[in-house]
Amino acid sequence: MWLHSSCFLEFNIPVPTPFLLMLRPRSGRQQWVAREQYVLSPSVPVVEFTDSFGNLCQRLVAPTGKFSVHTSVDIETADASDTAPGAPFVEVQHLPDETLPFLHPSRYCESDRFTEMAASIVAGRAAGYDQCTAIVDYIRNTVRYTPGAGQQIISATELNELGSGVCRDMTHLGMACCRALSIPARMVVGYLEGLEPMDLHAWFEAYVGNRWYTFDPTQASLQGGRVAIAFGRDAADVAIYTQFGDPVDLLSMYVNVEQRPGPPL
Rank of each mutant, 00 (worst) to 15 (best):
W2E: 06
S5C: 15
S5K: 02
C7V: 10
L9F: 15
E10I: 03
P14G: 09
V15N: 07
P16Y: 13
L23S: 03
L23T: 03
S27M: 10
R29N: 09
R35W: 08
Q37M: 10
P45T: 05
F53N: 02
G54R: 03
C57N: 13
Q58I: 00
Q58D: 04
P63W: 08
P63M: 07
T64R: 15
G65Q: 12
F67G: 02
F67A: 03
S68Y: 09
S68P: 11
H70F: 12
S72C: 07
D74M: 10
S81A: 15
A84F: 14
P85T: 07
V90W: 01
P101W: 09
R107D: 10
R113Y: 14
T115C: 06
T115M: 10
A118V: 04
I121C: 00
A123D: 13
G124E: 08
R125S: 14
A126W: 02
A127M: 04
T133F: 03
I135K: 03
I135P: 00
I135L: 10
D137T: 11
I139C: 08
N141A: 15
N141S: 15
V143R: 12
A149D: 11
G165F: 06
C167M: 05
C167A: 14
M170Y: 08
M170N: 06
M170E: 13
A176L: 11
C177G: 07
P184T: 03
A185I: 00
M187V: 04
V189K: 07
G190D: 09
Y191G: 01
L192F: 04
E193A: 13
G194V: 03
G194N: 04
L195S: 05
E196A: 09
E196W: 04
D199M: 09
A202Y: 01
A202Q: 02
A206I: 07
G209V: 02
R211W: 01
P217S: 08
P217V: 03
Q219D: 00
D234S: 13
V238G: 12
P247I: 11
P247Q: 12
R260Q: 15
P263V: 11
